[in-house]
Simulated assay, not measured.
Amino acid sequence: MTGAGQEIKNVVLVHGAFADGSGWRGVHDDLTAQGYRVSVVQNPLTSLEDDVAATTRVLDRQDGPAILVGHSWGGTVITEAGVHPKVAGLVYVSALAPDAGETTSQQYEGFAPTPDFVIDVGEDGYGFLNGDKFKAGFAADAADADAAFLRDTQLPINMAVFATPVKNAAWRDKPSWAVIATDDKAFDQAMLQHMAERIGAEITTVPASHAVYVTQPAVVAGVIVTAAKNATA
């Protein structure tokens, strides 16, 4: 509960790599139907600094404390941006969670590669998920039409972002929750569990693909509501 004894009502959603904010539609609709004020960040995916700046602009607009939510690469973004004074709690949705001084790439060390998650990198250093492997790697439990739309609306990411260390780790000072998709092909399951356990997150597991925020919006929204009810502003 907040210091005033009332539930936090603001939620800020941050997408990951190879996607834009439209995938949050189901979570947005679920939460707004419950009376939450939901904002969706549109990360440019050009650098960690740019994505943090985009998130900070949205956080600055909140009229009170907020729960900050990140999917996949968005976890790295909320780890840095979450030090914002309006952030009361963090929700990691099959998301990366580096510590201060660590890069995103370092989170993969010691874990098995995932053969279905194939990134095609162009000469300019930006990566798209391979079209032929997209459904299997990103959204295996989505309807074919929905997976095709996600594939065709991809937002490429500057691959250099994965080598950029974060300066701050908001999870060290703020309560965290994690949703782990047990059929996620973007990350080794042991990697997801390790990251969530290291940050002391309350963990919820759900049978879903990496696109869990699209295919299981009610579960994701439920964890966000739990965070809103239990974080202290």
Rank of each mutant, 00 (worst) to 15 (best):
56 T>K: 10
96 L>A: 13
118 V>W: 00
93 V>P: 02
175 P>Y: 01
66 A>Y: 02
149 F>C: 04
233 A>C: 07
5 G>D: 12
215 T>I: 07
232 T>V: 15
124 D>E: 11
231 A>V: 00
223 V>P: 01
218 A>G: 07
26 G>P: 03
111 F>M: 12
210 H>Q: 13
225 V>E: 10
146 D>M: 08
115 P>Y: 08
163 A>S: 15
148 A>R: 15
134 F>Q: 11
93 V>H: 04
127 G>F: 11
64 G>V: 04
111 F>Y: 15
218 A>V: 08
179 V>T: 06
36 Y>P: 14
188 D>R: 03
147 A>Q: 05
33 A>V: 01
91 V>G: 01
174 K>Q: 00
107 Q>A: 10
58 V>W: 10
97 A>S: 11
36 Y>L: 10
88 A>T: 01
154 Q>G: 14
40 V>Y: 01
225 V>S: 11
52 V>T: 05
115 P>K: 08
86 K>F: 07
30 D>F: 10
60 D>K: 12
2 T>L: 12
52 V>F: 07
76 T>W: 06
202 E>K: 01
48 L>T: 05
108 Y>P: 00
40 V>N: 07
146 D>F: 03
128 F>N: 09
183 D>M: 12
3 G>M: 06
114 T>R: 15
160 A>P: 09
76 T>V: 15
161 V>F: 02
23 G>M: 09
115 P>C: 05
166 V>M: 10
113 P>N: 04
37 R>K: 08
88 A>D: 01
180 I>H: 05
33 A>S: 14
188 D>E: 04
140 A>R: 11
120 D>E: 15
113 P>A: 03
165 P>V: 09
35 G>R: 12
45 L>E: 05
8 I>E: 01
191 M>N: 13
142 A>C: 10
113 P>T: 06
226 T>W: 00
122 G>K: 14
74 G>N: 09
177 W>Q: 02
90 L>G: 00
192 L>Q: 14
58 V>H: 10
84 H>I: 03
199 I>H: 04
58 V>L: 15
202 E>V: 02
53 A>P: 02
33 A>D: 07
204 T>C: 05
49 E>K: 13
198 R>D: 10
30 D>N: 13
181 A>S: 13
211 A>K: 08
120 D>L: 10
233 A>I: 06
160 A>D: 15
130 N>V: 11
172 R>A: 14
189 Q>S: 05
70 G>E: 05
9 K>E: 09
40 V>F: 06
233 A>G: 14
37 R>T: 11
161 V>C: 11
83 V>T: 15
64 G>L: 07
212 V>M: 02
194 H>G: 05
32 T>L: 05
96 L>H: 05
229 K>G: 02
209 S>E: 08
25 R>T: 11
233 A>P: 02
51 D>H: 12
171 W>M: 03
78 I>G: 02
183 D>F: 07
180 I>S: 04
221 A>W: 06
81 A>R: 04
225 V>T: 13
145 A>W: 02
61 R>I: 04
6 Q>G: 14
13 L>T: 03
199 I>T: 03
24 W>R: 08
202 E>H: 00
143 A>E: 13
181 A>G: 15
207 P>Q: 08
195 M>A: 13
27 V>S: 12
114 T>Q: 15
11 V>Y: 04
134 F>C: 14
